[in-house]
Simulated scan of single mutants.
Amino acid sequence: MIPALVPLNGSPWSVLPPGAHTANLEEVASAFATNAWRRELFGGLILASSKLKEAGCTKIFLDGSYVSGKPIPGDFDACWDPAGVDPVTLDPVFLDFSNGRAAQKSAFRGEFFLSSMTCVDVGKSFVDFFQIDRFTGQAKGIIAIQLSTDPLLFAKVQS
Results as ranks from 00 to 15, higher is better:
residue 2 I to Y: 06
residue 4 A to H: 09
residue 4 A to S: 15
residue 5 L to T: 14
residue 5 L to D: 12
residue 6 V to N: 09
residue 6 V to L: 10
residue 6 V to H: 08
residue 9 N to F: 14
residue 10 G to T: 00
residue 11 S to T: 06
residue 11 S to V: 07
residue 11 S to Q: 09
residue 12 P to E: 06
residue 14 S to I: 00
residue 15 V to E: 07
residue 15 V to N: 12
residue 15 V to R: 15
residue 18 P to M: 14
residue 19 G to V: 06
residue 22 T to F: 03
residue 22 T to Q: 13
residue 22 T to I: 10
residue 24 N to W: 01
residue 24 N to V: 01
residue 27 E to P: 02
residue 28 V to M: 12
residue 29 A to P: 00
residue 30 S to R: 13
residue 33 A to F: 03
residue 37 W to V: 09
residue 41 L to S: 05
residue 41 L to E: 03
residue 42 F to S: 03
residue 45 L to P: 01
residue 45 L to R: 04
residue 45 L to K: 04
residue 46 I to C: 11
residue 48 A to R: 02
residue 52 L to I: 04
residue 52 L to T: 05
residue 54 E to G: 05
residue 55 A to S: 15
residue 55 A to C: 10
residue 58 T to N: 10
residue 59 K to G: 11
residue 61 F to Y: 13
residue 62 L to D: 02
residue 63 D to T: 06
residue 64 G to V: 05
residue 64 G to K: 11
residue 67 V to M: 08
residue 68 S to R: 07
residue 69 G to L: 07
residue 70 K to F: 05
residue 70 K to N: 11
residue 71 P to Q: 14
residue 71 P to Y: 13
residue 72 I to V: 11
residue 72 I to T: 08
residue 73 P to H: 07
residue 80 W to I: 06
residue 81 D to A: 06
residue 82 P to L: 15
residue 83 A to E: 09
residue 83 A to Y: 08
residue 83 A to N: 13
residue 85 V to S: 13
residue 85 V to M: 11
residue 85 V to Y: 14
residue 87 P to H: 09
residue 87 P to N: 07
residue 88 V to P: 03
residue 89 T to A: 14
residue 90 L to E: 06
residue 91 D to R: 08
residue 92 P to W: 03
residue 94 F to D: 02
residue 95 L to M: 07
residue 96 D to A: 13
residue 97 F to Y: 15
residue 98 S to P: 00
residue 99 N to E: 14
residue 99 N to I: 00
residue 100 G to T: 02
residue 101 R to P: 01
residue 101 R to A: 11
residue 102 A to M: 01
residue 103 A to E: 11
residue 106 S to K: 14
residue 108 F to Y: 15
residue 114 L to E: 03
residue 115 S to C: 10
residue 115 S to K: 09
residue 115 S to A: 13
residue 116 S to M: 03
residue 116 S to K: 04
residue 117 M to Y: 13
residue 117 M to E: 15
residue 118 T to V: 15
residue 119 C to F: 12
residue 123 G to L: 12
residue 123 G to P: 12
residue 123 G to I: 11
residue 125 S to C: 13
residue 126 F to V: 12
residue 126 F to M: 15
residue 127 V to Y: 08
residue 128 D to N: 15
residue 128 D to I: 04
residue 128 D to T: 12
residue 130 F to I: 01
residue 131 Q to S: 12
residue 131 Q to R: 12
residue 133 D to Q: 05
residue 135 F to N: 12
residue 135 F to G: 02
residue 136 T to N: 15
residue 136 T to R: 14
residue 136 T to F: 15
residue 137 G to F: 03
residue 137 G to Q: 10
residue 140 K to R: 14
residue 140 K to T: 04
residue 140 K to G: 07
residue 141 G to M: 01
residue 143 I to P: 02
residue 144 A to S: 13
residue 149 T to G: 07
residue 149 T to C: 05
residue 151 P to C: 06
residue 153 L to W: 00
residue 153 L to V: 02
residue 154 F to N: 06
residue 154 F to M: 09
residue 155 A to I: 00
residue 155 A to D: 02
residue 157 V to D: 06
residue 157 V to F: 06
residue 158 Q to N: 09
residue 159 S to D: 01
residue 159 S to H: 04
